[in-house]
Design a protein around this nucleic acid. Structure first.
Length: 592
RNA sequence: CGGGGCAUAGCUCAAUUGGCAGAGCGCUUGGUUCGGGACCAAGAGGUUCUGAGUUCAAGUCUCAGUGCCCCGACCA
């Protein structure tokens, strides 16, 4: 039985005001409640109170990962270049990968993730299909040299991540197992008391439901997610990847080049107006009747994306469509060089050497308005197939307000979210590159099929605060609270009954497995109440002359408005009930 | 990487035209208090981010550097 933590001796430097560089609610509260301090941009120290929360979440993760057959390992944080060269990621990863040399000039990096290392481990030890599936996970520090760390531990450079990797004999087995992991993730975030949503993280057009992001819903989230208003449908996706346009959106085909409805192109002077909205206003036309072009550069050559005037390009989709992550937007000089006109006056017609990749929705524009490829002019009645051809067609745009659910056609709801977990069916990308093979039943070597699964542990802490706080401070869900209860004892000197009552209540709570923080500081009651609210312990118990005069102890949930007076003999059961302790949990906690 | 801003006590911030470096909170000591961040008194605490320059004089002006923050493209 652990003794109660005495606040007078507990390293809990609370602050009345947050440091000025804390830039969101959770970071402010984590600083103020003495959970974290900052060492450098994106690098934090976790103090005892914060670490207790981190450990609570880790424990939940371990239990759920173990329950689906995961086995915990500890993989190195410092990893040799040689392994990263095998998958070409030493070159591909970019500046986010922190690299350095040891005294012998050997090249290393600080692990941002561990696919290479774990695949290396497995290829050396796994021989047979009989040894599969194998699920290994670890909870350890990662480092990604983020361009712009922000929001405290939510986007830090050094961070605690649970990363898991599964190896399978065959595609079917990963698919089966992937579902188990998603189930475990739902339990993990559910047990953490979070309101979250798993969303598809891969464009559904590719047909996959094998990458999910787990989003904690919060107004302050950096991610935007759309979900179907109909729970029966259940479609939910990151806005970055949500299906927007579909082939059916195109209403024309090559035969339409001779459509009698096509009108003759005509130039219109539009001096100085380059935005679709400006030209639309001048002409009294809807933006949806426009064809919008955006020029990109791939390996020094121009590529044009074509969109309907009221739509926004999704660069990630364009990159995926072209299978070219290295594309970049063309600058003004390149517009002039390749299209012969400044940005804002370019149209798809008249550039046979520039491949055009059209969003499906753009193909439905009849007699469209677009740039005339001359400074100060736009053109009417431009039509695909007659005036230009597309090298490719795809879903290239962002979902916009008013778009229907791509699955069932009903309305979409928009939410903000914080990504706390990501699951991914990897396939054989790493096992093939690194030669992680097993012998199948027919003695044929096969690359192991892999899945990988991450959880940002520190980010989960911050997300929990974003979702559970009020003006006074944090309101921890009981399952991840640093302590279950805080005991505030007042009038110690003035009333001898208080000490006795505190002693018996303290030992009863501890014996029942309640994690107890006792505020024994020589401070005024106000200070203690303020700090208790700030650090957000779920249950507050006050013993004082006043409470005893009224018949016992004063008990209050952090979320409750008013305390209740409970007779001393009832304090233990009442506390356990308020904490939602079942008998089982209490016993488990006691026997630890 | 591009654009903008900031850097003064542990925290939040002042310092007029270039003219003695300050306040609140926190901390220490003593006293008085004790149910929502109490009060009185006395203290401790500073390389004004670093370096150079201008000046009789620089927290303040100039230059360079560093760190941090905010706005845009990656990610747990």
């Amino acid at each position: 039985m652990t003794p109660a933590a005495k606040l007078s001796r507990f390293f809990l430097p609370t602050l009345r005001e947050a440091p000025s560089d804390a830039d969101n609610v959770s970071a402010k509260l984590m600083f103020r409640s003495g959970m974290i301090r900052k060492v450098a941009s994106g690098i934090y120290e976790w103090l005892p109170l914060g670490l207790r929360v981190l450990r609570k979440i880790e424990r939940i993760i371990r239990e759920e990962m173990d329950s689906i057959g995961g086995q915990e390992v500890s993989l190195p944080v410092v990893q040799p270049r040689a392994l990263w060269d095998e998958t070409s990621r030493w070159g591909v990863y970019g500046k986010e990968l922190l690299r350095f040399k040891d005294r012998k000039d050997g090249e290393f990096c600080f692990a941002p993730t561990a696919e290479e290392v774990v695949t290396d481990l497995v290829r050396r030890e796994i021989r047979s299909w009989r040894q599969l599936p194998l699920m290994l996970y670890q909870i350890g520090l990662k480092f990604r040299d983020e361009i712009r760390p922000r929001f405290g531990v939510m986007r830090s450079r050094e961070f605690l991540m649970k990363d898991a990797y599964s190896f399978h004999a065959g595609e079917d087995d990963v698919t089966r197992y992937y579902g188990e992991v998603v189930g475990a993730y739902k339990k993990i975030f559910g047990r953490c008391g979070l309101n979250f949503r798993p969303v598809e993280a891969q464009s559904g057009a590719i047909g996959g439901s094998f990458s999910h992001e787990f989003m904690v819903l919060a107004e302050t989230g950096e991610e935007t997610i759309v979900s179907c208003a109909d729970p029966q449908c259940g479609y939910a996706a990151n806005i970055e990847r949500a299906e927007a346009s579909r082939p059916g959106d195109a209403r024309t085909g090559p035969s339409s080049a001779n459509d009698p409805n096509l009108k003759t192109p005509a130039d219109i002077p539009t001096p100085g107006l380059h935005a679709v909205e400006e030209v639309a206003k001048l002409l009294g036309e809807q933006p949806r009747r426009f064809l919008k072009t955006q020029l990109y550069i791939l390996h020094g050559k121009p590529v044009m994306a074509l969109l309907r005037g009221d739509h926004q390009l999704n660069e990630a989709k364009l990159a995926a469509h072209l299978a070219a992550p290295e594309i970049r937007r063309a600058n003004e000089d390149e517009y002039v060089k390749f299209l012969g006109c400044p940005v804002g006056f370019a149209g798809p017609q008249g550039h046979p050497d520039v491949p055009i990749h059209a969003d499906y929705a753009a193909l439905g524009v009849l007699n469209g308005i677009t740039g005339a490829n001359k400074n100060g002019f736009h053109a009417r009645n431009i039509n695909m197939w007659r005036d230009f051809n597309a090298a490719g067609q795809a879903d290239l745009r962002m979902t916009t307000a008013g778009d229907p659910c791509p699955r069932c056609g009903r309305n979409l709801e928009w939410h903000k979210g914080i990504e706390v977990g990501h699951t991914f069916k990897l396939g054989i990308k790493y096992s093939q590159a690194m030669g992680a093979t097993y012998l199948d039943k027919n003695q044929n070597p096969q690359p192991a099929v892999m899945g990988c699964y991450g959880i940002g542990v520190g980010r989960t802490v911050a997300a929990a605060i974003e979702q559970n706080h009020d003006a006074a401070g944090i309101r921890w869900p009981a399952s991840i609270a640093p302590f279950h209860a805080v005991l505030i004892v007042l009038d110690l000197a003035a009333d001898p009954r208080v000490r006795e009552a505190a002693a018996s209540l303290r030992s009863a709570l501890l014996a029942a497995g309640v994690e107890l923080l006792e505020d024994d500081r020589e401070d005024s009651p106000g200070v203690k109440f303020k700090d208790a609210d700030l650090i957000g312990i779920p249950l507050r118990i006050v013993l004082s002359k006043k409470s005893l005069d009224r018949g016992g102890a004063e008990i209050k949930l952090r979320s409750a408005l008013q305390p209740e007076i409970v007779p001393l003999s009832e304090c233990l059961p009442r506390s356990l009930a308020l904490l939602g302790f079942s008998g089982k949990e209490a016993v488990a906690a006691t026997t630890e």
